Amino acid sequence: MTTSQRPTLPELARQALSSVQRGYDLLAPKFDHTHYRTPDPVLEATAAALRTGGGPFGDGLDLCCGTGAGLRVLGEVCTDRAVGVDFSAGMLAEAEPAFAAPRPPAPYRVRANAHALPFRRAAFDLVVSFGAFGHFLPSERPYLFEEVHEVLRDGGTFAFPMAAPPRPGTAAYWSLLAFDAAMRVRNAVWRPPFVMYYRTWPLADVRDDLRRTGFDVALRPLPQLGHRNDGSPRCRLVVATKR
């Protein structure tokens, strides 16, 4: 990666002082050269877990697809349509190569808000999402899950990876705490808000909200991504099945 491929500090500052949608429109041309893009090992581990646990699936949706990295997962585990939805026109434009992938039928993209998915009821067998949930406040989580529940067929799967939280007192713990604190200060003094938090989706609360929405929830370790010192996995796949 060259320096010109990475976003500069002024570019990141301009993004952070914009709305979420405008910020991603601005960042889109360089997004895949940042650490915000979901790493390939996470995508590969997710695809492997879905292949061995319920796949293959029919129609698949990548929720908040960004530049389309998650479409690789749908391409590996779905036999029919692969659809990506995102509210950033800039990100969808950068995703064009992903949607041109040679798989029948060809994937397609839809610009829409995740709170108002423009699909008929029971349209998909699988919904995945990668790295987008920090943009949703805890109060929004039940509504987001209801949208996913609506577009899934009975017995359909909603799957997304969740990393184990860093241990209190570690450098990673303080780093995420500082980031979230800085975002709260920014949003208190600047408009429009830019919603992005790392510590607002604890697993226990996520699981409870999924169950209340009408999902059965299972956790699948992703051992390819390593283990912590106590032997627990660094990352799990949350697999929510529509009752």
Rank of each mutant, 00 (worst) to 15 (best):
T2G: 15
T3Y: 10
Q5D: 14
Q5V: 13
P7L: 09
P7F: 06
P7M: 10
L9C: 12
E11V: 05
E11A: 04
R14L: 14
R14W: 12
R14G: 13
Q15H: 11
S19T: 10
S19H: 05
S19I: 09
V20N: 05
Q21R: 15
R22M: 11
G23L: 01
G23E: 02
L26C: 09
P29M: 04
F31W: 04
H33V: 06
H33E: 07
T38E: 02
T38N: 01
T38R: 01
P39A: 06
P41W: 05
V42P: 01
A45N: 01
A47M: 08
A49N: 02
T52Y: 11
G55H: 00
G55N: 03
F57Q: 01
D59S: 09
G60N: 04
G60T: 05
L61W: 02
D62C: 04
L63C: 08
C65N: 04
G66P: 03
G68S: 10
G68F: 00
L71N: 00
L74F: 09
G75N: 14
E76I: 08
C78A: 12
D80F: 11
A82T: 06
V83W: 03
V83T: 11
G84I: 04
G84V: 01
G84T: 02
D86T: 07
M91V: 10
A95Y: 00
E96D: 14
P97G: 06
P97K: 08
A101Q: 14
P104W: 10
P104A: 13
P105F: 12
P105K: 08
A106H: 11
P107S: 07
Y108A: 11
N113Q: 12
L117D: 00
P118T: 07
F119D: 01
R120L: 10
A122G: 11
F124H: 00
V128T: 10
F130G: 01
F130Y: 02
F133A: 01
P138Q: 08
E140R: 02
P142R: 07
P142D: 06
Y143W: 15
L144K: 03
L144I: 05
E146L: 11
E147I: 06
E147N: 06
V148L: 04
V151F: 04
L152F: 09
R153L: 13
T157M: 12
A159Y: 01
F160R: 02
P161G: 05
A163C: 13
P165A: 12
P165T: 08
R167C: 12
R167G: 11
R167K: 15
P168C: 08
T170F: 08
S175I: 10
S175G: 14
L176T: 03
L177A: 15
L177H: 11
A178I: 06
F179T: 02
A181D: 11
R186F: 03
V189A: 10
R191T: 14
R191K: 15
F194R: 04
V195N: 04
Y197V: 06
R199Y: 10
T200Y: 12
T200F: 12
P202W: 09
P202H: 07
L203P: 02
D205M: 13
V206C: 08
R207Q: 14
D209I: 03
R211P: 09
R212A: 13
T213F: 05
D216A: 15
D216S: 15
R220Q: 13
P223Y: 08
Q224C: 10
G226Q: 10
N229Q: 14
N229R: 15
S232G: 10
P233G: 05
A240N: 02
A240R: 00
T241Y: 03
T241R: 07
